[in-house]
């Protein structure tokens, strides 16, 4: 087909449109994503979907355990800080906060957590009530702060490898329920994650 001179501007405009579409970048400013799924921005370290999966697994496993399921009364538990034994510095509170909240929600009163992180505030409140500075219901008075039946303690252990073929990271997330009187481990479960990645040659 012979190209008419007057159709040249149309062809040129079409080329611009095609090129514009072709070079459209997959960029975004901010968007909401599902924290339970791996996003576009990935890391070989702990990610949100790992925290969610760990919490889900531990909630199901712990609530099904006879220590909780067959208990005659709602046991009290203190969540201890998680220990990070991997090569990734991360906010450990994400794991413990998520797990504690999910446990509280799913347990529906079958267990209770003590808030040891605000001990100073509780002490000050008790003192204010007892000294008459603050009003309170005397029938709700307790002799002392609540002791715990169990400690819930988590840790993550990691192992890293690197070679010309890429990087690999293996992480084992473990939580234990420990008897606060005897130190006997009454329940334990783990979840492991292995991730591999390879940076472009320009970064190797």
């Amino acid at each position: 087909m012979k190209l008419q001179r007057r159709s040249l501007p149309t062809v040129f405009a079409l080329a611009i449109v095609v090129l514009s579409i072709g070079c459209k970048k997959e960029s975004f400013e901010i968007r909401d994503v599902d924290p339970g799924k791996a996003g576009v921005v990935r890391s070989l370290g702990p990610e949100s979907q790992d925290a969610r999966r760990v919490a889900e697994l531990m909630v199901r496993s712990l609530l099904a355990d006879p220590t909780i399921a067959a208990s005659d009364y709602p046991p009290t538990i203190a969540m201890l800080p998680m220990e990070n034994n991997s090569r990734f510095p991360f906010n450990k509170d994400i794991f413990t906060t998520l797990l504690e909240a999910e446990l509280n929600k799913a347990a529906n009163g079958r267990l209770r957590f003590v808030a040891r992180d605000i001990l100073d505030d509780v002490e000050a409140e008790r003192q204010g009530k007892r000294e008459g500075d603050l009003d309170y219901d005397p029938t709700r008075r307790t002799r002392a702060l609540a002791g715990v039946d169990y400690f819930l303690k988590g840790r993550v252990d990691g192992q890293s490898w690197a070679s010309s073929k890429g990087q690999a990271e293996y992480a084992v997330y473990a939580f234990r329920l420990i008897d606060a009187e005897s130190s006997i481990v009454l329940w334990q479960d783990v979840m492991d994650v292995k991730k591999e990645g390879k940076d472009d040659v320009i970064y190797r």
């Binding site: 970048k25 921005v41 990935r42 890391s43 070989l44 370290g45 990734f88 990087q167 990645g197 390879k198 940076d199 472009d200 040659v201 320009i202 970064y203």
Partner: peptide, 10 residues
């Protein structure tokens, strides 16, 4: 720690 696989930048 971002892994740039076969990205456009790379």
């Amino acid at each position: 720690e971002v892994i740039y696989g076969d990205s456009e930048q790379a």
